[in-house]
Design a protein around this nucleic acid. Structure first.
Lengths: 193, 193
DNA sequence: GTTATGCAACTAACTGGTTAGTCGGCTATC
DNA sequence: GATAGCCGACTAACCAGTTAGTTGCATAAC
């Protein structure tokens, strides 16, 4: 077997992603990660520091990259929701890691700066679209962003299982349609209920 | 100190609710629960069996009761969403316990029969209202129920913090307004997008 | 009303196994 | 033969669950 530190590191990270996504930080076992990666446990400490820093590395690689890789289009929020939905299907670990992070670390407030900044950018983009009249301004930008992201992740098979590809496609349609209704013109503001 | 098994049991359950809500099943410490309840650890095993069964007892007391205590009104889903939202503010542990359960046990599929049955009833009530024309039938009943419950819980301070009572009230308005838009008459079906 | 008895409630200390993290040495490669 | 990559074996702490024994209370006998 060829010696390749970068490759070993990659295998450890992938095994850690599986373990953390499935069991969370407290439930994850360092020995199990090393065994799954076919590597020695000591390498985890050599490459990543400790268990918590290993989680951070996994989180950065999977969740932070998701936030960066799915750009928002304020003029087409249903499309954005659909893309987020799809990303969740192809990367089922990401949402679970986000939830573990929220529960075991200090909620969304403890998210990495990159994620916080990205959310602020997205909210700003929504606000600009609202000022330009492309988007109704009945919800504050942060609230609208929360609704759209929340609805997208809601459909994920993790929380509410769908069985079969046609059920999944229907779920996707429901989510994008729901977002479309939220941003449709007409009706009053939230306060005017 | 008076000896009162029922009272001791109650204290243990309350302490366990705090511990499990904060740290989850794997992260919870039996010793910590006993200390917080001012009781001996062995009593936990005498009264509840083991750590997992203690979690079940906590879950039943807090989450299952929530499901039962907030009845659905298919003719007023925004009101239902608002009541769920409020319940989450007064019982902040419930949502966290639900999330821990989803992540550490096997997803929503592993929910207790009482919850599954209650959800089925709620979906049936929605289906009946759709047949009666009180509710648009653009979403299947189960999907609509998921959207409404999801939106209600989404606003919870746990996942997306709100600071201050006025921000909370606005969040509540956003949630109920969003549900109102989903069930408003007009527009096409989900499939017809 | 005082004392003996039975028992549920409770406790301190222990056990067996697990777990994060470490350390000294081995090995492939250049 | 120097060095980066890697490993087996170890440790100290931790943790769920158990056990043998103590304490307070109720009931009843005298």
């Amino acid at each position: 077997m060829a010696r390749d530190a970068e490759e070993t590191r990659r295998r450890l990270l992938a095994a850690a992603a599986d373990e953390f996504a499935q069991r969370g930080i407290a439930g994850a076992r360092v020995d199990r990660i090393a065994a799954a990666a076919g590597a020695n446990k000591a390498l985890i400490y050599a490459y990543f520091g400790n268990k918590d820093q290993l989680f951070d590395a996994v989180f950065d690689a999977l969740v932070v990259s998701t936030v960066a890789d799915v750009p928002i289009d304020p003029a087409d929020l249903p499309g954005y929701a659909g893309r987020l939905f799809d990303r969740n299907q192809t990367h089922p670990q990401a949402l679970r890691l986000l939830l573990w992070h929220s529960l075991e670390r200090g909620g969304m407030a403890a998210l990495p700066p990159a994620v916080v900044a990205s959310n602020a950018d997205k909210a700003a983009a929504i606000a600009a679209a609202q000022r330009a009249g492309q988007l109704p301004d009945r919800y504050p930008p942060e609230e609208l962003l929360l609704l759209v992201i929340g609805l997208s992740l809601l459909g994920s098979a993790e929380l509410a299982p769908t069985d079969g590809p046609e059920a999944l496609a229907r779920r996707r349609d429901v989510v994008t349609d729901a977002v479309a209704r939220l941003v449709a013109a007409g009706g009053g503001t939230a306060a005017g209920r």
